[in-house]
Computed example of a mutant assay.
Amino acid sequence: MTGIPASAAGGPSGARGAASVPGGPGAAGTSGAKAVQSPGNREGAGTSGERDGARPGRGGKLTAAAVNQASVWNVANLLTMLRLLLVPGFVALMLADGGYDPAWRSLAWAAFAIAMITDLFDGHLARTYNLVTDFGKIADPIADKAIMGAALICLSWLDDLPWWVTGVILGRELGITLLRFLVIRYGVIPASRGGKLKTLTQGVAVGMYVLALTGWLATLRFWVMAAAIVLTVATGLDYVRQAVVLRRRGIAERKAAAEEAAR
């Protein structure tokens, strides 16, 4: 994984962090000055926790040395790997005994729920403890789309969900992923609140369809899925709008920079 180097705390905040280290470069600063330590410069400051290597810093966060020593086998990536392993297991449970046995469908729902929950935790852990790795950047979105795609395709295969619903959701997810890559040279399209709500609604709706529900719960899941489809389309269009704006802004900035350099 690529940890945040200690030099990332440079600048004024880094200097304040250095002043708290006896004998460090900032030791000649104002006496009695207290270092203002944010989560970033706690990792960059030369504390004893860094010298010890793997001791957590103040606030429970790992210090820079611990982050630098982390490998691809960190807890966030392990949760991502678990999600990938759950995909074939989910499909096997979903299609067991013809795909309509309530007991097998309940087990399939449990596997799906675990995959969706770990999706929430691995991203949070990676951002909080700086466990972002190249493997995680690639594997995490693959795992997300694999479990959701497997569930949708199985449901459509069993005639529990129309194929057009599966096509809309998967088409949107793959299309937005491709769009992000196309405009990445101009900037990153951030995840919106609508996008997060869409993901949650999709997970709840698909989970309800995985379970063998009857009666009013079967009616409820129809409306939850309808809401998920609306959010899927609406947020997809919004991401397209953001991509267009980002591209235009990037082109304008590059043109302005070129004109400035030509003067």
Rank of each mutant, 00 (worst) to 15 (best):
M1H: 14
I4F: 05
P5E: 09
G10F: 10
G11I: 02
R16V: 11
G17K: 00
P22K: 10
G23H: 08
G23E: 09
A27F: 05
G29L: 09
A33F: 10
Q37D: 15
G40M: 14
G40W: 07
G46F: 01
G46K: 01
T47Q: 02
G57M: 07
K61R: 12
A64D: 03
A64K: 03
V67P: 00
A70W: 11
S71I: 05
V72N: 15
W73G: 10
V75K: 03
A76P: 05
T80Q: 11
M81G: 13
R83D: 08
L84Q: 12
L86T: 02
V87L: 02
G89K: 06
M94N: 00
L95I: 06
L95P: 02
G98D: 01
G99D: 02
G99E: 02
Y100E: 14
P102T: 03
A103T: 15
W104C: 03
W104H: 14
S106N: 15
A108G: 07
W109H: 13
M116Q: 11
T118P: 02
G123A: 04
L125W: 10
A126M: 07
T128I: 13
N130W: 04
T133Y: 05
F135D: 01
D144L: 06
I147Y: 01
A150L: 01
A150D: 04
A151G: 05
I153M: 08
S156P: 01
D159C: 02
D159W: 09
W163R: 05
G167A: 14
I169S: 02
L170C: 04
E173G: 03
L179A: 06
I184G: 06
G187S: 08
V188Y: 06
P190E: 15
A191I: 05
T199K: 01
T201L: 11
Q202L: 07
V204K: 07
G207P: 12
Y209P: 06
V210A: 00
L211R: 02
W216Q: 15
T219Q: 13
L220I: 08
A228L: 12
T235D: 03
T235A: 02
T235S: 10
L237Y: 00
L237S: 03
D238N: 01
V244M: 12
L246K: 09
R249Y: 01
R249V: 10
A252T: 03
K255M: 13
A256R: 13
E259I: 04
E260I: 13
R263C: 06
